[in-house]
């Protein structure tokens, strides 16, 4: 296993700053966290379309791929790359190509958790 410490530092700083930005918006406005996360996903989609988010992932690793912005980025990239191969219909077929891990995992774990546990209140 190859550990590059500078990547960890970058992951910590970039990831921390993205979360910090979310917190500052939450505290300074009346927006709910749902509004802020939705905004971040839209931002990620646009940055992905412009090809600006991948360089950040390259630089900060988990610091850029863990925050929800990366979800928007992956959706856009999936749509774009598949559209490049098969034309406009690829937007539909490629949409969830890169994000299916996250969505599927969340559905499965959510379902399993609901079977095994109950809300603690």
């Amino acid at each position: 296993m190859r550990i590059i410490w500078s990547t960890y530092l970058a992951a910590f700083l970039v990831g921390g700053l993205i979360c910090l930005a979310g917190q500052v918006i939450y505290d300074r406005t009346k927006l709910t966290m749902g509004h802020i996360l939705t905004g971040m996903v839209i931002l990620g989609g646009i940055l992905g379309g412009l090809g600006l988010y991948d360089p950040l992932i390259k630089f900060a690793g988990g610091g850029a791929s863990m925050p929800i912005i990366s979800f928007g980025n992956s959706l856009a990239k999936g749509a774009i790359s598949e559209a490049g191969k098969t034309g406009p219909i690829g937007i539909l077929t490629g949409m969830f190509e890169l994000t299916s891990t996250g969505i599927t995992a969340a559905i499965i774990f959510g379902f399993l958790a609901a079977i095994v546990c109950r809300s603690k209140g």
């Binding site: 960890y8 992951a11 979360c19 988990g62 610091g63």
Partner: peptide, 27 residues
């Protein structure tokens, strides 16, 4: 503001570092 911001920065950074660890592990 300040306390919330610091908590968000450090906990968010930590979550991403853990994520990076798993990336390296799976790689």
């Amino acid at each position: 503001y300040t306390a919330n911001a610091l908590w968000a920065f450090f906990s968010g950074g930590l979550v991403c570092v853990i994520g990076q660890f798993f990336i390296d592990l799976y790689a």
